[in-house]
């Protein structure tokens, strides 16, 4: 068990972060290159102001008409994403690791806050899972992969939570925690989790396309939020 831990903490982490960054960079480079040839419409009508507003309104809670139509989902969705990003980044235990390895660290959340935050994220995953099953228009779209991704996202939070609370075998939980976190990093560039970057591009496009492009000569573009 300890050997596995050593591997996951050392080479495993290097592999995961390398795949994550290089994978995303390669995917983006490929798409940008392709877009220059086949998506001229993106460049012809691009506009920073509309692109930014199109992104911004979907980053703030209930910033869009769409989410305001389903406010509970909208809020859960927002809290889920904030927790997903903030807890691993600002967790004290993670920052200690950064500090040991590279001598750098980010501001840290208190352990108590992180603990509650983790519970909230897990509750959000449960909500999203149930919503996926309960709403006919979501269920009909959902494939095994959509459920599996939610479970994969849940895994590092659940195992981290159990390890922190020392529930169950600690060594196993810790290893599972690191493994599932690394697995998620590796999957991001190759799955729809790639939206952590692609979101900004698709939103920038539709914002410019429906907003700026329609806005010349006294016309008003359409808001896509």
């Amino acid at each position: 068990m300890y050997q596995l831990y050593e591997f996951l903490r050392g080479p495993g982490a290097w592999i995961a972060f390398t795949v994550f960054f290089v994978g995303l960079a390669v995917r983006m480079a490929f798409l940008v290159g392709l877009s220059k040839e086949r998506d001229k419409v993106l460049y012809n009508h691009f506009d920073w102001s509309w692109a930014w507003r199109s992104i911004f309104h979907w980053l703030i809670p209930l910033g869009s008409v769409s989410f305001r139509q389903q406010p509970i989902f909208g809020l859960v969705f927002w809290v889920f994403h904030v927790g997903l990003l903030a807890i691993p980044l600002f967790l004290n235990a993670h920052n200690v690791l950064w500090d040991e390895a590279f001598g750098i660290s980010l501001p840290s959340l208190s352990d108590k806050l992180a603990d509650y935050g983790t519970m909230v994220v897990m509750a959000c995953v449960a909500f999203l899972f149930i919503r996926r099953l309960a709403r006919p228009e979501v269920r009909i779209l959902s494939e095994g992969w959509d459920y599996l991704l939610l479970i994969l996202v849940l895994a590092p939070f659940l195992t981290g939570f159990l390890a922190y609370r020392q529930i169950g075998p600690y060594d196993l939980m810790l290893n599972l925690h690191i493994f599932s976190g690394e697995l998620m990093l590796i999957l991001i560039p190759f799955s729809k989790l790639g939206h952590i970057i692609l979101f900004f591009f698709t939103r920038a496009f539709i914002g410019s396309e429906m907003g700026a492009r329609r806005e010349i000569e006294g016309r008003l573009g359409a808001r896509t939020w």
């Binding site: 798409l31 392709l34 877009s35 969705f77 979501v138 729809k192 692609l198």
Partner: peptide
């Protein structure tokens, strides 16, 4: 011919959230 960056991205990242239905 239509499978440019936009189509590839759209086909891939739909999160199946169902918000478009309404």
């Amino acid at each position: 011919m239509n499978k440019g960056a936009r189509f590839r991205t759209w086909l891939n990242i739909c999160a199946r959230c169902g918000l478009c239905a309404d």
